[in-house]
Amino acid sequence: MPTPPPTGPLVTRETLAAQLRDLGVEPGETLLVHSSLSSLGWVCGGSVAVVQALRDALGPDGTLVVPTQTGELSDPAQWSRPPVPREWWETIRAALPLYDPLVTPSRGLGVIPETVRTWPGALRSAHPHTSFAALGPRAAEIVEGHAVDCRLGERSPLARLERLGARVLLLGAGYDSCTSFHLAEYRIPAPLVEVGRPGPHGWEAVTEVSIDSDRFDELGHDFERDRPVVRGKAGAADVRLFPVADAVAYAERWLALHRPREEEF
C-alpha cells in the first residue's frame, strides 16, 4: 500500500512566525512554551522550523523557555508506564545515571523542547526532575539557581518567569501541561512527599511539595472563562496565550476551593 499524502495544513517557518505575531507574541518578551509538533499540521523543517519561528517572533531580545523534565530519574517503585518488576528496583536505583544538564534528554514533552535543549547557546536549570531550558538574553537569569529540593516552587524558574512578566504559550498543548499552575500548589496547603532519585553519593530521598496535574484541564477551562486569554490558531493547532502571573494567581484561588480537603493535608 502506498503511503498516504499528508493532510496538512502546510506550515513553514515564515507562516508560523507570522501567525504567532498576529496572535500577539511580542518582540523582546519572555515566553514559556508548551507544545505539540503533530498538532500543527505538516511542518516543513519539523521542530527546527518551529523553534526558528518562535525565535523569529520573539526577535533577538526575546527569550524562549521550555520545560525539559526528566521523570525517569526517579524511584522505579513509582513507575507505571510501564511498571518494572520489584526484583529490579534496587539494581535500577544503583544504576540510574546522575542528571547532567548537558546530556540527559527530556522525556514525555515532545520533540520541540528537546530541540530547544540541544540548540546552540541554550542553558538548562539544575533540578534533576523538573528542569527548564532557555534561549535568549534572559536565559541565565531564568535557569540559574534552580534549587534541587524545589521542583516547581519559589526557587524554580517558574517563580522567576512570574516576576519577569513572562507569558505562557500553549501551542497545540492543553492546560494539563501548564506548569505555571504547579507554582500555585506551593502557595496553598499541600501535602509533602518523599521523592527518590540518584544522587552524587548514591540513592537519595528529598522531601518535596506534592504536585498533581490531574484537574488542570478543568482549572484551565475556568481560567479561560474568567480571565483574558488570547485564543487562536497556528497551523492546525489551537493556541492559548496568557501571563504566567495570571495563571498562578487564578490557580491559587481555584485549587484552594476545589481541591478535596484530604488532598490538602
Results as ranks from 00 to 15, higher is better:
D246H: 06
V103L: 15
P128W: 11
P191M: 12
P200W: 08
D61F: 05
D56K: 06
L123K: 04
D61W: 04
S156H: 06
L109C: 03
T15K: 02
L170R: 03
S74G: 14
S80W: 15
I142W: 11
V33C: 10
S180H: 04
P200A: 14
V33F: 09
I112V: 13
L54D: 03
A166I: 01
L16C: 05
T118D: 11
S177C: 09
A159G: 00
A57K: 00
D246C: 04
W203N: 04
P60Y: 05
Q78V: 13
F216W: 07
R187N: 00
A133L: 12
V193Q: 15
D238G: 11
P4A: 10
G108D: 15
R138Q: 14
A17L: 03
P105I: 04
P85K: 12
A57H: 01
R167A: 02
E114W: 04
G45W: 12
T207Y: 05
E252I: 09
G202I: 01
A133W: 10
A159P: 00
A95Q: 15
A122D: 08
A95Y: 05
P191E: 14
L152E: 15
G202M: 06
A122F: 03
A251E: 06
G59D: 09
D217K: 05
C44A: 14
G145I: 04
P189E: 11
A57C: 03
P76T: 14
G153T: 00
L37E: 10
W88V: 11
L20A: 02
F216E: 07
W79A: 12
R124N: 02
G62S: 06
A140W: 09
L96T: 05
E29P: 02
E208L: 12
R55K: 05
G202N: 10
D176Y: 02
S180T: 10
Q52R: 12
P82S: 10
G172I: 04
D75T: 05
D238H: 09
T115I: 10
W88R: 14
P97N: 13
